[in-house]
Amino acid sequence: NITNLCPFDEVFNATRFASVYAWNRKRISNCVADYSVLYNFAPFFAFKCYGVSPTKLNDLCFTNVYADSFVIRGNEVSQIAPGQTGNIADYNYKLPDDFTGCVIAWNSNKLDSKVGGNYNYLYRLFRKSNLKPFERDISTEIYQAGNKPCNGVAGFNCYFPLRSYGFRPTYGVGHQPYRVVVLSFELLHAPATVCGPKKST
Rank of each mutant, 00 (worst) to 15 (best):
P197D: 12
F126D: 00
P96I: 02
N120F: 09
Y39A: 14
I142K: 04
F8Y: 08
D90A: 09
V181E: 00
I2W: 12
T100F: 14
N151P: 09
P169H: 06
C150Y: 02
I88E: 00
I88L: 05
K199P: 12
E141L: 08
R179Y: 00
F44K: 14
F99G: 00
S19R: 03
L162M: 07
N87E: 06
F44H: 14
R127Y: 03
A81Q: 09
L131H: 02
P43N: 10
T140Y: 10
K114S: 12
P177R: 03
G155Q: 11
V181K: 01
K128F: 07
R27I: 15
S139Q: 10
K94M: 04
T170A: 07
E186P: 09
R16K: 15
I138C: 11
I138T: 14
V20G: 02
P43S: 09
N1F: 08
Y119K: 08
A192M: 13
A190R: 13
D90C: 08
P197V: 15
S19G: 06
A192G: 13
S36I: 05
Y119N: 10
Q176Y: 02
C6G: 05
P7T: 11
I142H: 06
D9K: 13
G196P: 13
L122F: 12
V32E: 09
Y119A: 08
I138S: 11
L111S: 09
N118S: 06
Y171I: 00
S19L: 02
D59Q: 13
F45L: 13
I88D: 00
V52I: 13
V115S: 10
P149I: 08
A145S: 09
T140L: 10
P82D: 01
G117R: 03
T193L: 12
K114E: 11
F47S: 09
D98T: 12
T170V: 01
N58E: 12
D90Y: 08
Y178T: 09
T170W: 05
G166P: 02
F44A: 12
S69H: 04
N75Y: 15
Q84E: 09
A89I: 05
N107V: 04
A42C: 06
V194H: 12
S69V: 03
P177I: 02
V181L: 06
G152H: 10
K198W: 12
P197M: 15
Y121H: 11
G116D: 11
K199M: 14
R127D: 00
T170I: 01
V153R: 14
L188R: 15
Y93F: 05
A67P: 00
F8P: 04
S69N: 05
V71H: 02
P43R: 09
V11Y: 06
N130G: 11
R163Y: 15
T193A: 12
Y93P: 00
W106R: 07
S139V: 06
R73H: 05
A42E: 11
F126R: 04
P191Q: 14
R179F: 00
E135K: 07
S164I: 02
P177W: 03
Y93K: 02
I142V: 12
R27F: 08
P191L: 08
I88P: 01
Q79K: 08
T170Q: 07
S200L: 14
I2N: 14
N75A: 15
A192R: 14
C6I: 05
S53K: 14
L5A: 13
G83R: 11
T140K: 13
N120P: 05
F167L: 00
S78L: 09
Y50H: 06
R16N: 15
C61I: 09
K110N: 11
L162E: 00
F156T: 06
F17V: 07
V182D: 00
S129M: 10
V173H: 12
R168H: 05
N40W: 08
L5R: 14
G155S: 06
L162W: 02
V65S: 06
P191M: 09
Y123C: 13
Y165G: 02
S139W: 05
P133Y: 06
K48A: 07
S53N: 15
G174H: 06
F12C: 06
V180G: 01
G152D: 12
K198R: 13
F47R: 08
K110W: 07
K110G: 11
V194Y: 11
P82T: 04
L131E: 00
G51W: 04
G51S: 08
F185H: 04
I88R: 03
V115I: 15
P54G: 09
